[in-house]
Nucleic acid binder design. Structure first.
Lengths: 136, 136
DNA sequence: TTATCTTGGTTTCCAGGGAAACTTTTGTCA
DNA sequence: TGACAAAAGTTTCCCTGGAAACCAAGATAA
């Protein structure tokens, strides 16, 4: 036997991160599928939703909302711009700071995506049982 | 004013997926940092933990545990093998089906990583408040 | 036994995102 | 004012993972 005594090690299912990753992937990937029929991605949805019904959102603010690096954010914005969903302009009195804004097309698309997000929530909520006092 | 009346759209923070992604990223990326001092990644940890204290784990079983495609899994295994942490052998009576196993080095490393996983859990658990009956 | 189908696993190609280098503008200080 | 430092964005390089093509080995059927 090659199995000499092994140090005990906590199994995967005891770790929060394991389940978070698992559930998060389930939820996100289902949402992703809904979105791709509209040629969008989850990240793009987050970016667009952040800009919706607001003016003068800065690049920095968006980075914060997306939780990604400025490099990655910049690329997302380029892609959204190439689809004519957003506009990048310079802020007043600046040739440096950008102000981001949805285009009319972006404004039109957003509620559709929001509905998909709601539907995805509903789908997963429906599979949950009612809360009980068992664990309280 | 360019803001003609906009259709209302549910904000990001009302969606489960948004929070799952957020929390999951927090937890995983902190764990990632702990792991990288040992030259490992979260996925590699999951793979290794699945093999630990077991023999004759098949490729298919591992794919299932990792929740990724066979292509991606294959690459992870190659990397683990190149670090001499696992071994791939053909199963009995087969020149096709593989059997995966940790090496002695792998067996030695695993409990160390498990301790890091426990520590990460503890870190996040510590920030939680006691359960109350408020929501039950 | 040979021919075809299926299955296990690898490789290739592509998209997304992080790290860090780089460019341009702005601010600061001598 | 001129020189240098800091900040905003972009670009490049790299790594990870999915999709799908591909290859080799068993299985099945003629």
């Amino acid at each position: 036997m090659s199995n000499t005594t092994l140090t005990p090690a906590s199994p995967l299912e005891t770790h929060i991160g394991f389940w978070l990753r698992f559930v998060s992937n389930q939820v996100s990937s289902r949402f992703q599928k809904l979105l791709e029929e509209h040629g969008t991605t989850v990240t793009e949805w987050v970016a667009m939703r952040t800009l919706y019904a607001r003016e003068d959102v800065t690049h920095a603010e968006l980075i914060n909302a997306l939780g990604m690096t400025k490099g990655a954010a910049s690329k997302i914005l380029s892609k959204l711009e190439s689809k004519a969903l957003i506009e990048r302009r310079f802020a007043e009195n600046s040739a440096k700071v950008q102000v981001l804004r949805l285009t009319a097309k972006g404004n039109a698309l957003l509620p559709v995506l929001a509905a998909l997000a709601d539907a995805n929530d509903a789908f997963f909520s429906a599979t949950l049982t009612k809360p009980s006092n068992r664990h309280c």
